[in-house]
Design a protein around this nucleic acid. Structure first.
Lengths: 208, 208
DNA sequence: AGACTTATTGGCACAACATGCCAGAAAGGC
DNA sequence: GCCTTTCTGGCATGTTGTGCCAATAAGTCT
């Protein structure tokens, strides 16, 4: 569907990712606060000015890594069969996107855990999910029949995005491995299933 | 439950709110980007240094106004009868917190609409909800029987917070009044009901 | 290949941001 | 009254993020 990106664009994306890796290593070692933008630029072999052409905020330098999973999720959903019930499609694509496929995905997930422990990167984390939510909204809108209440779509996108975020935050705070029980795909599956089935929490607590 | 704040603390809160109002007026008029921290400080009658003692980031100066509704929500929930099913308690407190009660609430809601249109304040908006989500999580945990899966509680708090956020964002983007159809409490009620009933969206779309 | 157009880069200057530090003012407790 | 604690303002400072311009590289066309 989306045309092949121009060569220039692909080179740009590669540079972007280079910087992201460099920044992630520095942030993980000494924290985002103690790392200056100049330091990142120097380590990445570019000038400070160029750094700010790729990222408007220092902390956002790691966004490409944090956003990789979410992007994959929405892609998978967009490609999934339209015959599948939405709840099925959402859960499957979520689990798949949380299952590290190639080396790049493993790497992104590894960085995610370190970076999520840096409070200074909270803003970037939120921004990443905000973007993810918006893309998800678009894909949901395409999949739903025309005339579906936009509020419902927004709400669905927001809730689903929140579920993935919670799963990842829970994983990052734990010491669970990247696969098996307690792993992102495990927690993600539980969150998505719980969410699409209607949270048990709502009815289980309180009288009557 | 929460002890009375000391006099000093209450004076501090008042100053905080003063600054917030001043900042909101400036942000609404000229945008957050075009407003310097020094300008806010001057207009609020304090020094730049003192401003940064109240808010560590310029944009956060309006956070007390944006956060007022969410705080009220969690308060109401905490006070609500434990006999009420959680879904009922959540919806009622949400609707009530979105219904402007006193002048201060009307004012906060008014500012919220203007401020939400400033992209520069997105970060603050997210941070406010992040805090709200955390407080909600605490209250939910108290209400749930011991041993309730923490993941479920996190997920519930995240989803509910997202619902309120979506309702307010939808309202702010519209030209609906603060009461009646399309108002925050109307949208909020719809979002919370939809969420706690299990989103229709999940099942309605796709084959089978 | 060569000429032309477009995009990227780096250096410089600069306003604004945000924090550490210290000394003076004010509030609260005895 | 005094003393302790907290709040305040001014100053200095490193960092952030952007506008501007000239040099370079990449992409396109005949």
């Amino acid at each position: 569907m989306t045309g092949r990106p121009t060569l220039t664009q692909r080179r740009r994306d590669a540079t972007r990712l280079d910087i992201a890796r460099t920044a992630a290593a520095l942030f993980a070692r000494q924290g985002a606060e103690a790392t200056t933008a100049e330091e990142i630029a120097l380590a990445a072999g570019i000038s400070l000015r160029t750094f700010y052409r790729y990222f408007s905020v220092k902390e956002d330098a790691v966004a490409p890594l944090l956003a990789a999973g979410g992007r994959r999720w929405v892609e998978l959903l967009a490609e999934s069969s339209a015959d599948l019930p939405l709840r099925e499609a959402l859960e499957r694509s979520a689990v798949e996107s949380l299952t590290p496929a190639d080396d790049a995905a493993v790497e992104a997930m590894h960085w995610t855990r370190s970076l999520l422990r840096d409070p200074r990167l909270d803003g970037t984390w939120q921004r990443v999910h905000s973007g993810s939510e918006e893309r998800l909204r678009t894909v949901l809108a395409e999949r739903c029949p025309d005339g579906t209440d936009p509020l419902e779509i927004r709400l669905g996108a927001a809730a689903a995005t929140a579920a993935i975020r919670v799963a990842l935050e829970q994983w990052a705070a734990s010491d669970a491995a990247a696969t098996g029980p307690g792993s992102p795909q495990d927690l993600g599956a539980r969150c998505m299933r719980e969410l699409t089935a209607g949270l048990r929490l709502w009815g289980r607590v309180g009288g009557e």
